[in-house]
Structures are given as C-alpha cells and as structure tokens.
Design a binder for these strands. Structure first.
Length: 469
RNA sequence: GGCGACAUCGCCAAGUGGUAAGGCAAGGGUCUGCAAAAUCCUCAUCCCCGGUUCAAAUCCGGGUGUCGCCUCCA
C-alpha cells in the first residue's frame, strides 16, 4: 500500500510502526459553528481511509480532536450571547449528529482541548526551559529559529516567511513567524491559571499534547486538509521536535479543498453551505459518491448538478442489489469465483495506490453491471452482488441496506397494492387503457411505481425525492 | 515577491512512456397498448507551440488559462 506523504512529497510504501496496527490522528473541527460541506469532504475522506485500512486487515486507532477553546468560539459566544462553554457544547453535539448523518463512523476518542490545558502548560514550560519558547507580557511564543529545519513540511524557508509577512509586525515576537503557545486573557475571556498568568493555550499545541497522550510520541498517520500544512502542522512538528527530537507522525496526509462552482467557499461570496443543509436535500451516499469520485488530493468542485449526477450513479448500485434480491441472499454462504476475485484485486490495487477512490468506484460499477447481467447464471450474479457490497462497504457505502432496500410497508398495504395490480391487469385485458393508466398514475402519486415486465407487473416504492434539487 | 497545483468526450473523472477506465447525460435498438423500468449498442486522441523518443495525454522547454498557500481557515 502506498500513501502520499506531504513530508517527502512522494508516494511511499506504507509501513506502520507496529505491524498490523495503525494509529491515526485527524484534525477535527473548531466547534464554533456547524461544519460546512468542505469540512465534510475532509472528515468523510479520512473515514474512508480508516475503513479501508480496516478492510485491509489493520487494527486502526482513530483519534479526532475537538478544538473547544479558541478566538472563534469567543467571538461566537459574543454573537450568540451565550457562554463559550455552551457554544462548545452546542456545536459538539451538532458535529456528532452531522457526521453520523454523513455515514462517518465515530472516532475511537474525541479529545477536547479544554481537557488538556494542564498538559499543554507542562509542554510549554518544558519548551521555555529548554530555550525553544519565550514569554513576553503574559504571552508565550515558540521561536522558529530555535530548531534546525522549521518549514520542512510546507517547503518554506524562515527567510521567505519574513519577506512575505503581511500582517502588522507583532513587536513582541523575536521573529515574525514565531507562533503563539500561550495567550494572555483579556477581561471577560475564558482563562486558566499558568506560570505566565491567566490565559489560554494557542491552537497549535493541543494536537501535539493530545496525540502524544493517546497515541504515544510517534504514530503512523496525521491527517487534515491541505490548508493545515502551514502553519498548523508545521508548528506541531516544531513543538514535537523541540520536546522529543521526533516528528510525531510518520505519514502526513492532506486532503484537497472543495470549491463552489469554481470559487472558494466563503461567507462573503454567499456560497457557504453547511453539511446539515446539504443533507436535508441530498442522500448521504450521493454526497459520499461525489467526494470519492475525485482523488482526495485534488480540488473538487461542488454544484447541485454534480450531486444529482452522483445520486443517479448510486441508484445504479441499489438497483443491482434490488434485482438480485440481495436481502434474501445476504446471509447465505457463498464462495467467490475467479471473476469476482479479479474484481477484488482491481479494487485493492486502486485503493492501495494512495486511495484512488475514483478508480475503485469504477470496479464497483463493473460488479454492479455483472450482478445485473441476466445472461449470467443466478449464482454468479449473486456473487457479484456480494463482492459489490463488500467493496462498497470498504468505502462506506451500503451502511443501511435494510432501510434502502426494504419497502417499509406493512402486509396489508402490500396486499392492497397487489389487489390494484390485479384490477389493472384485468382492465388491460379488456383494453380499458384509461382505467389501467389511472391506477398506475394514482399509485405513483402515492410513491408506488409499477413496472410491466415480461413476467407480469412488479412494483417498488420510490424512495422519497432524496435526490432532486 | 516566494512556493505549489491543475488543464482529458456535453458534464464529472481515471490514466505519468506503448497507442484513451468508469459514471452522468445523449442518440439508437429490444421490450411495452402507451409509459416507466430494465437491457443491449453507439459516443474523445487528451489547452497551444516546439523538442526528446521507434513510441507521449504521459518526459523536457516555451506559451495561454484556472486555482491554491505564504494571515484564521477543513
């Protein structure tokens, strides 16, 4: 399995520290608002990384932090007129809700910054004592010149940063790129006691402390979106190296951004979409398909049309499973033949190549196509359905087959539908097309779709308009 | 100013030296009273120019265009 490592800018063979297990840490949300569709891409993609690693046989420990103290929470607290702690509580609950709705599996642990204040202070104290950090008027900064290769992850040089610095000079800093470890509290702000006075930690320290506490000094994968490379992850590495001499993560993975119809998503452009609002209009699997249809490191462009296309595509998978009555066969024993094993091979080859989900999805379509192909023997079609579900699950699809494939009608309702079909068949025999069409149209209004097949009339429940804009 | 990414069919998208996956849409056929559904078939030489090579979408150089980071940001 190869993974693109931002640290080396190459695809590297993935070798975990402990064979058979993967420890990964994904930067989570700052809980000052509902998360948006761009966040969703990142969270969902790394959910797929986790699922696939598990599918590949690894035991995965998955940590995702929650940043629950930060300037943005303070601002939101003022805006909503409720305490910072309540802002955090509200949006943490929303995060879990929306992530679940997207089909994202819960992390093994979700450490919160405010639970780690004491340990962060400890780390900062050590860095100060060892000469990597300095205090100025209650603030504490990390000195980027104190370590040898600051900028290694992002490919930046300390000198260039100096030239490019656009922000007004913070006269307290010895170097413009020095970053805040501890920030003195202004009146009314949440604060904790520290050797430098009352204040709160800077953002870049929490992930170092929490990952070290839960995963050890070095772990396998550290992930986030591309914008975190600099300065966030660069600054994490600086602190890790200052305190242990080690980069705390071996593989650094970064997902690309999501744009809205070609433009960067921003509140000022009025093209800002919350994940929960999109979920009201589109099926979660359509959204998943959309994200996975493009390689994770490339930018992806969001539009309603494209989600709609994705929804159409996902329907294909389900129609294959419906055709073969997957629910009826899913518990039956089966042995895959060479043709199915070949598909599995193609699937893992694609995914092993830095999670090429687009190519992997093409394999799902092959499986779906064969599962539907009536010239295949039924047993063969069933096996293709099995491999389809197996591969799909590794990508996070088919999480709730019962809900998707069952009609959710009671027996009486089904008998009534059957009764109408009988009446309609008689009407057709008498060439009473008006009555036949009326029955068909009226049932359609109730969400029951009739299909005249060579074997008689079949019916299915049209899933609610989960797809159309 | 510094750093980086990308440009493949109407739309989305894979493919990094050996002669263009897949999906959506579209067109045609089958089926049908009609329709829907289903199913089968069809559908690109890869932004431009030059170079390297037996061979390039894939490598090199030069254009053009789009986007991102350097500041909080998933």
């Amino acid at each position: 399995m190869k993974i693109y490592n931002t640290l080396t800018r190459t695809k590297e063979e993935f070798t975990p520290i402990t064979p058979g297990t993967v420890k990964m840490y994904v930067c989570g949300p700052t809980v000052y608002n509902y998360f948006h569709i761009g966040n969703a891409r990142t969270f969902l993609f790394f959910d797929v990384v986790r699922r696939y690693l598990q599918y590949a046989g690894y035991t995965v420990t998955y940590i995702q932090n929650l940043t629950d103290i930060d300037d943005k929470l303070i601002n939101q607290s003022i805006a909503e007129g409720i305490p910072v702690a309540d802002i955090a509580k509200k949006y943490i609950a929303a995060f879990f809700q929306d992530a679940a709705a997207l089909g994202i599996q819960p992390a093994d642990q979700n450490p919160r910054a405010t639970e780690y204040i004491g340990k962060m202070i400890g780390l900062i104290k050590k860095m100060e004592a060892d000469g990597y950090a300095y205090e100025a008027n209650g603030d504490v900064y990390f000195s980027v010149e104190s370590i040898a290769d600051y900028g290694a992850l992002s490919g930046k040089k300390v000198e260039d940063l100096q030239v490019g610095a656009r922000v007004e000079a913070n006269t307290q800093k010895r170097h413009p790129a020095d970053f805040t470890l501890w920030k003195a509290a202004k009146p009314g702000e949440p604060k904790w006691k520290s050797p430098w006075g009352e204040g709160r930690p800077g953002w870049h320290t929490e992930c170092v402390v929490m990952s070290r506490d839960l995963l050890g000094e070095q772990f396998d994968i550290h992930a986030g979106a591309i914008d975190l490379i600099f300065p966030h992850h660069e600054n994490e590495i600086a602190q890790a190296k200052a305190t242990t001499g080690l980069n705390h993560a071996r593989y650094w993975m970064h997902g690309g951004f999501l744009n809205i119809e070609g433009e960067k998503m921003s509140k000022s452009l009025d093209n800002f979409f919350l994940a929960r609002d999109i979920l009201k209009q589109y099926d979660a699997e359509a959204i998943r398909f959309f994200f996975l249809s493009k390689h994770y490191r490339s930018p992806i462009d969001f539009s309603r049309e494209i989600i709609h296309e994705s929804a159409q595509a996902v329907k294909n998978f389900y129609s294959a499973l419906e055709d073969i009555d997957y629910l009826g066969i899913r518990d039956a024993a089966y042995t895959l033949d060479a043709v199915q094993l070949e598909l599995r091979e193609q699937f893992t080859t694609a995914m092993d190549d830095d999670f090429n989900t687009a190519r992997a999805i093409a394999v799902l379509f092959d499986a779906a196509k064969q599962a539907k192909n009536q010239s295949n023997p039924v047993e063969s079609r069933q096996k293709f359905a099995h491999i389809l579900v197996e591969m799909g699950r590794a990508l996070g699809f088919f999480g709730n087959l019962d809900e998707k494939l069952k009609t959710n009608l009671n027996e009486t309702a089904e008998q009534l539908i059957q009764l109408f079909i009988t009446y309609r068949t008689e009407a057709k025999k008498q060439k009473n097309w008006a009555m036949a069409d009326r029955i068909r149209d009226d049932l359609k209004k109730l969400g029951i779709q009739l299909k005249d097949t060579p074997n008689g009339t079949e019916w299915k429940v049209e899933k609610q308009a989960d797809f159309l804009p």
